[in-house]
Computed example of a mutant assay.
Amino acid sequence: MRTGHGAGDALPPRRGQGELEAQVLAVLGGAPGPVTAAWVRERLPGTLAYTTVMTILTRLHAKGAVARERAGRSFDWIPVADGAGLAALRMRKVLDGEADRQAVLASFVTSLPPGDEQLLRGLLARTDEEGGG
Rank of each mutant, 00 (worst) to 15 (best):
M1Q: 11
M1H: 07
R2Y: 08
H5I: 11
G6W: 00
G6S: 09
A7F: 13
G8I: 13
G8R: 15
A10Q: 14
P12Q: 05
P13S: 01
R15K: 07
R15L: 11
G16A: 14
G16D: 12
G16W: 12
E19R: 10
L20W: 02
E21Y: 02
V24D: 00
V24Q: 01
V24L: 08
V24E: 05
L25W: 09
L25K: 03
L25A: 06
A26L: 12
A26F: 06
V27F: 00
V27W: 00
G30S: 01
G30P: 00
G33P: 02
G33W: 06
V35K: 09
V35L: 10
A38V: 13
W39H: 08
R41F: 04
E42T: 05
L44P: 01
L44V: 06
P45H: 04
T47W: 07
T47E: 15
A49K: 09
A49M: 06
Y50F: 11
T52P: 04
M54Y: 13
I56E: 09
I56C: 10
I56R: 15
L57E: 08
L57H: 10
T58M: 03
R59L: 05
R59Q: 08
R59Y: 02
A65C: 11
V66W: 06
V66E: 08
V66C: 08
E69I: 11
E69S: 10
R70F: 05
R70A: 14
A71I: 00
A71H: 15
G72A: 02
I78M: 04
P79Y: 01
P79G: 02
V80S: 09
A81F: 00
D82S: 02
D82F: 01
G83N: 09
G85E: 06
A87H: 05
A88T: 08
M91L: 14
M91K: 08
K93G: 12
K93Q: 11
V94E: 10
V94L: 13
E98R: 14
E98T: 15
Q102H: 13
Q102P: 03
V104H: 01
L105P: 02
L105Q: 05
A106D: 15
A106H: 12
S107H: 14
V109T: 04
T110K: 13
S111L: 10
P113R: 15
G115S: 15
L119C: 04
L119I: 01
G122E: 09
L123C: 07
L123R: 08
A125E: 05
R126W: 02
E130K: 12
G131P: 03
